[in-house]
Design a protein around this nucleic acid. Structure first.
Lengths: 127, 127
DNA sequence: ACAGCATATACCCTTATCAGCATATAAGCC
DNA sequence: GGCTTATATGCTGATAAGGGTATATGCTGT
């Protein structure tokens, strides 16, 4: 994880929101779409960008892709994700996103369907 | 100072080196040129970029321009400059740059010339 | 006013990002 | 094998960044 590449990922609002969500645990593309209220292509491209930079990793689970913050993460990234909680949370709506993530995961647990039963084990790995 | 703009400034190696130097005190363009071993236009453009983003401020002193990290700095920028000391110092040659800065300022003090006598008071304001 | 130094800006070109739209791949189900 | 869902990629156009060269501006000293 190159210093410059970390910052390149951090200088986009949508990527910051994605990282803020993933830092609490893995998510799949469809969840990110729902939480961010964005479309599939945009999300996929941002994920590819960050994967190329080494910040995140993706793993296929049946027809879904589960993304997580890369294991080999640097203190720099960690520090920033932490610091952003205080510096940018309001500005970027982190609280709203995180709450949305929580309720979405709760719904997945209480109303099982194909998706939830396949990927829930993977989501719980970290969060 | 917008979060995104801070990161935009941080995602270039030369700008990181400049910020690392300025965090220890103001410098003028000619010093940055010498320390970074870069040409005037490149430095000037990076300075303008960062000034536009609100990270640094410049002040004219006679025919020189003295740049410093903007007063209204955010905890995010401060944290990063601190963290970079550990995370990127070696990779980006911060130690070399800082040593170069130190010796250059020492020379300015011991061998007064037009430049040094004009701007030294401004440099000492912070460092 | 002129010359000289320090710095900034304009212009051109190349490359990187980003969005929007269409299409391809991959897995699961019938 | 077709159909559906989930995700990725390709293509195009727009905008931003970054390097290089030339030129403009601002200040100083004569």
């Amino acid at each position: 994880m190159e210093v410059i590449n970390i910052y390149k990922c951090l200088c986009d609002e949508q990527r910051l929101r994605i990282l803020n969500l993933l830092k609490d645990g893995p998510l799949c593309v469809c969840h990110l779409m729902e939480i961010l209220g964005s479309d599939q292509v945009k999300i996929s491209k941002q994920l590819r960008y960050m994967k190329g930079m080494g910040l995140i990793a993706g793993e296929r689970v049946a027809q879904w892709m589960v993304y997580r913050v890369a294991e080999t993460d640097s203190p720099l990234l960690e520090e920033n994700l932490k610091c952003l909680q205080d510096c940018a949370a309001e500005r970027l709506g982190f609280a709203r996103d995180s709450a949305h993530r929580k309720s979405l995961l709760a719904k997945l647990k209480s109303e099982p369907n194909a998706c939830s039963s396949a990927i829930l084990p993977f989501l719980q790995a970290t969060s």
